[in-house]
């Protein structure tokens, strides 16, 4: 069971943060996208901060999976769980980059 969790944890956390940021995007656009923010529009500020946080979480997970204490014993499961860790990190950066690059509420 622990091995299964090691393999699944990073991508599942990606899915959670992806959905959460999509929901947050819906929320900030529902509230008042026109409100002025400090220098940049506040929807983008909030979403970019959440994006950064999601990346940090994934890096932390990857470090845990690679550590001797929480990672799997060397072998098949270790390889697949580390691959899962990379999938989570790459997916977080790849799928949430629009927070920096596209129009939030148009």
């Amino acid at each position: 069971m622990k091995d299964l969790l090691r393999i699944l944890v990073s991508p599942v956390i990606w899915l959670a943060s992806f959905s959460a940021i999509y929901a947050l995007h819906g929320l900030v656009c529902a509230v008042d996208p026109g409100m002025p923010g400090p220098g940049i529009a506040w929807p983008r500020l909030v979403l970019s901060l959440a994006f950064g946080l999601a990346i940090l979480v994934q890096i932390g997970l990857l470090a845990l999976l690679a550590s001797a204490r929480f990672g799997a014993a060397p072998g098949f499961v270790r390889f697949v769980s580390l691959a899962g860790g990379w999938v989570g990190l790459v997916a977080t950066v790849w799928t949430l980059i629009p927070t920096l690059a596209t129009t939030p509420c148009g």
Partner: peptide
């Protein structure tokens, strides 16, 4: 909104990698 679509467009291209 376009940003919402962009998240899913990005995820839909990423899924082609695995």
């Amino acid at each position: 909104p376009h940003m919402g679509l962009a998240f899913f467009s990005a995820a839909s291209t990423l899924v082609a990698v695995p």
